[in-house]
Design a protein around this nucleic acid. Structure first.
Length: 827
RNA sequence: GCCGGAGUGGCGGAACUGGCAGUCGCGCCGCACUCAAAAUGCGGUGAGGUCAACCCUCGUGUGGGUUCGAGUCCCACCUCCGGCACCA
């Protein structure tokens, strides 16, 4: 950059032969332009000009593990192509990046190596940021947000308080995985075969008071608004639909002999007359009082066994379905019949009412259960004629039998009728339940945003006043024994903001998914120190126009973020109801059928590639490897092909001008126009692999062309601009150093083409005989069918292939194909 | 078990609404440049058939079907990947 572009151009033109030009040196060029872009603040988010459209391009921000991997390279390169493409199309692009910096690795490093989590995290962020910059991703780093910085988590805490005020944050007792040796709570992924991942001790289930977000209050809206997400992959929408899992049914009230009610939830009230037993969850509050002395030991044994397992383990089909009678009986709400009450390990307290009615004739689980324990099986649904009820339970629909008052009714009608009858008698009502549970957000850990609440012996739970935020993480805590904050008295000892008396701070921190549920809003006004986000800025950029990330976040992050957005909407803080307009999920990198990850040791360092072939070639290779939404098989990848392509592009940029015939000019214009059309359409549909293939062809064909005049020069400018989103460094170097442009190629306008240039004048028509290609002819575009047919039948090769047989039929598709159908030749 | 997705050369992959299967790239082979190698450039490369040539046959997971014509549409199945999984 020390040399003036014009001088370079002069020197280039003085060169005697294109063979002796300088070779492209990616490492030097990339370093040079990285520096220059910084000086120019090229990627700073522009203030939108009057009437200019904004475009919010976002990729899921990473956990700063210290080392970027190829999955990140793919993810962020996809987003960067889109950001650069939109920028060149004239949008005011917001393309930010930050770090999801709270979480376990930092705390584990503290436990294992005594490194301060904050130091550890900052060091990793530094390294990842440097790698991101080297990759040439066009982020506006002045907007960087880091979730572990107090000026961010202050607002995470503020939002917690908002949720609390709105009744959406609450405390209740719940089971957690607890390691008695390490005296700490474990996340599910830290439990391996029921043992602590670090010390191998058997993990216990402890019931502790935990904080929850009431996401179930938004279940219906989260479900119904999936219909609005037409820019999302169908797959993800389905996954969310299933995750929320709305099911319509009824709550039916059975009663114990002494008159206490046991509500059960069922989706099949039409089978109500087939109930021959009830099963309660081991944790069901009535179990304790129902069980008679003779059955007590067995019941307690089952409860103890169930209690040892975490719910997610119990809810697995491998676990044997065990049931134990309580000795008590329940009265059927419509028939008054007495049915035995059992306790079963397969009934979950957290779904429905924690009790189920057993209909063995029409439910597979109940059937197996009844068989095993010798319970009555009473069919009440007759399958439609011609349908075999089969060996086990018949779970389909049909006509009611053995159901006094409802016999002969079809299942769907009977469901409504029976619910109506139950309602009339006060024995039940229609009810909807959800698979979705409330979101457990508290973590008994240090490296997260502290939950801003205070426990006062007199006033109970008191929120930290917003003026007192942030509740800072204290330095100098002790790791490895229990919750670091709970063990750190200077942190928790405080006074009640309400009564001024001595009080104790909440020592739980928030799930990191809370941090990432609103970061996209923070990016709109990252430095606002008066509120989490500036509504005006949010109005300008939100919703995110395109969000790129992995499908592994289909239900957690993407659902939580939607939940937050709706709560903020209800609180009047924004008018946006859905955060992500369009979602693009990229495929994984797989090796031998397994996802590539650090733990499998099969990661390839992007830095090694950058040193070898440069960031541009690394980007191009990753995008060229296959369609970005599909998994890509990582078999001996060689970025050299991409590097060669860029080398040829460099050569193209160095071609000196010369003469150009009109025919050559036309051919050149055609090549360029084709490329512009194809690449533009392909980027729009995220087909980067074929866009790059088209660019490779264009570069090859242009180098082959004899002309080096104005058309050639224009074509080179087109191709360089088309390549800019993929390979930002080399295109910038060609644009400014070789072509002498003053302004960055990344601020140049996206090329357009003249449709006239891609309109073919002749077309090659394939001629088939009985579906086999036998000849092809070049004809003027639009040649009439009759003419085409005549021309085809006149061809020597066709006459030969027909061998004297008369065409039975001739199919003509103008400009494409003629198929002559004849009887099969005699052998 | 349920719900998604995918099976195409040695490899990654291409093929718009049914119309030339295999764009582009990797690898491999040959040639040029070189004292030589690397790098680079040029050419070839699905399988088979008295391949020298034109040419012919076969070929998109398997088996059927629709059609003048199927990688593409329909039916049945196989394999792999992802998600959910006692949800009452």
């Amino acid at each position: 950059m020390e040399e003036e572009p014009g001088r370079l151009l002069e020197r280039r033109q003085g060169m005697p032969d294109s063979r002796v030009q300088e070779r492209y040196d990616p490492v030097a060029v990339e370093a040079r332009w990285l520096r220059r872009w910084d000086e120019e603040e090229l990627y700073r988010t522009p203030a939108p000009a009057a009437g200019q459209k904004t475009f919010y391009q976002l990729e899921m921000f990473p956990y700063p593990s210290g080392e970027l991997h190829m999955g990140h390279v793919r993810n962020y390169s996809i987003g960067d192509v889109m950001a650069r493409f939109r920028r060149m199309q004239g949008h005011a692009v917001l393309h930010p990046m930050g770090f999801d910096a709270f979480g376990m690795p930092a705390e584990n490093a503290a436990i294992e190596r005594g490194v301060d989590p904050n130091v550890f995290t900052e060091r990793n962020i530094e390294r990842v940021r440097t790698q991101c910059r080297r990759m040439g991703w066009s982020y506006d780093w002045s907007r960087e947000v880091v979730t572990s910085h107090p000026d961010y988590y202050r607002w995470t805490q503020w939002l917690f308080l908002l949720f609390y005020e709105r009744g959406l944050a609450y405390r209740k007792e719940a089971s957690v995985n607890y390691c008695p040796v390490d005296e700490t709570v474990l996340a599910n992924e830290q439990v391996e075969d029921g043992r602590c991942w670090r010390c191998g001790a058997e993990v216990e289930q402890r019931r502790l008071n935990q904080w929850f977000f009431r996401i179930t209050a938004y279940a219906d809206r989260l479900l119904d608004d999936i219909a609005l997400l037409d820019g999302w992959p169908e797959r993800i929408r389905l996954m969310q639909t299933h995750w929320i899992g709305r099911s319509q049914g009824a709550e039916v009230k059975f009663t114990t002999e002494d008159g206490r009610s046991i509500p059960v939830f069922t989706t099949r009230p039409d089978t109500l007359f087939g109930v021959t037993f009830l099963v309660l969850a081991p944790e069901h509050p009535l179990v304790e009082t129902l069980v008679d002395p003779a059955h007590r030991p067995a019941v307690e044994g089952l409860i103890a066994a169930a209690g040892r397992l975490a719910e997610f383990q119990r809810a697995s089909e491998e676990t044997e379905k065990i049931g134990v009678p309580t000795g008590a009986f329940a009265r059927h709400p419509l028939t008054g019949e007495l049915v035995p009450i059992l306790v079963g390990n397969y009934v979950l307290m957290s779904y429905g009412t924690g009790a189920v009615m057993g209909v063995p004739a029409h439910d597979t689980r109940d059937f197996a259960f009844a068989r095993r324990y010798g319970l009555t099986i009473r069919p009440v649904i007759a399958p439609p004629p011609g349908v075999d009820p089969g060996e086990g339970a018949y779970t389909g629909e049909g006509v009611l039998v053995n159901s006094p008052g409802f016999d002969g009714m079809a299942s769907d009608a009977a469901r409504a009728a029976i619910v109506a009858e139950l309602e009339a008698r006060g024995m039940g009502q229609g009810r909807t339940t959800y698979h979705l549970r409330d979101w457990l957000i508290s973590r008994q850990r240090y490296w997260g945003a502290p939950i801003p609440m205070i426990h006062c012996p007199r006033c109970d739970l008191v929120p930290v006043p917003v003026e007192a935020l942030p509740v800072l993480l204290p330095p100098g805590v002790r790791f490895g024994h229990g919750s670091p904050l709970a063990e750190h008295e200077p942190f928790w000892r405080t006074t009640c903001p309400r009564c001024g008396g001595p009080a104790r701070r909440e020592t739980d921190t928030m799930d990191t998914f809370v941090d990432s549920s609103w970061y996209f809003l923070r990016f709109c006004s990252p430095h606002d120190d008066r509120r989490p986000f500036d509504p005006e800025a949010v109005e300008r950029y939100m919703p995110v126009d395109e969000y790129v990330g992995g499908p592994e976040h289909a239900v957690l992050h993407l659902l939580y973020a939607r939940f937050f957005q709706k709560v903020l909407f209800d609180a009047g803080l924004t008018r946006v109801t859905e955060p992500f307009h369009r979602l693009f999920t990229q495929g994984m990198l797989v090796q031998n059928g397994a996802k590539m990850s650090k733990s499998k040791g099969n990661i390839v360092s992007p830095e090694a590639w950058m040193d070898r072939v440069g960031a541009d070639a690394t980007r191009v290779h990753m995008l060229f490897a296959g369609p970005p939404d599909r998994d890509v098989e990582w078999v001996d990848p060689r970025p050299e092909g991409a590097a060669r392509f860029l080398g040829r592009l460099w050569r193209l940029g160095q071609e000196k001008s010369g003469p150009e015939t009109p025919e050559a000019a036309r051919a050149i214009r055609r090549i360029a126009a084709h490329a512009v059309k194809k690449v533009t359409e392909d980027i729009e549909r995220h087909a980067f692999n074929t866009a790059i293939a088209a660019l490779m062809e264009a570069v090859r064909d242009l180098l082959d062309q004899p002309g080096r005049g104005p058309a050639f020069s224009a074509a080179v400018r087109d191709v360089v601009r088309l390549t800019a989103p993929f390979a930002p460094f080399i295109t910038e170097a060609i644009w400014r150093e070789l072509l002498g442009e003053a302004r960055s190629v990344h601020l140049a306008s996206w090329p357009v083409y003249d449709p006239e240039d891609v309109r073919p004048r002749t077309s090659e028509v394939v001629i088939q005989v009985n579906g086999r290609v036998r000849d092809r002819i070049e004809v003027p575009v639009g040649l009439a069918s009759e003419e085409l047919e005549r021309a085809a039948l006149a061809r020597e090769r066709i006459v030969e292939a027909l061998g004297g047989r008369a065409p039975r039929r001739v199919v003509v598709i103008p400009d494409r194909l003629v198929n002559v159908v004849a009887d099969a030749p005699r052998p």
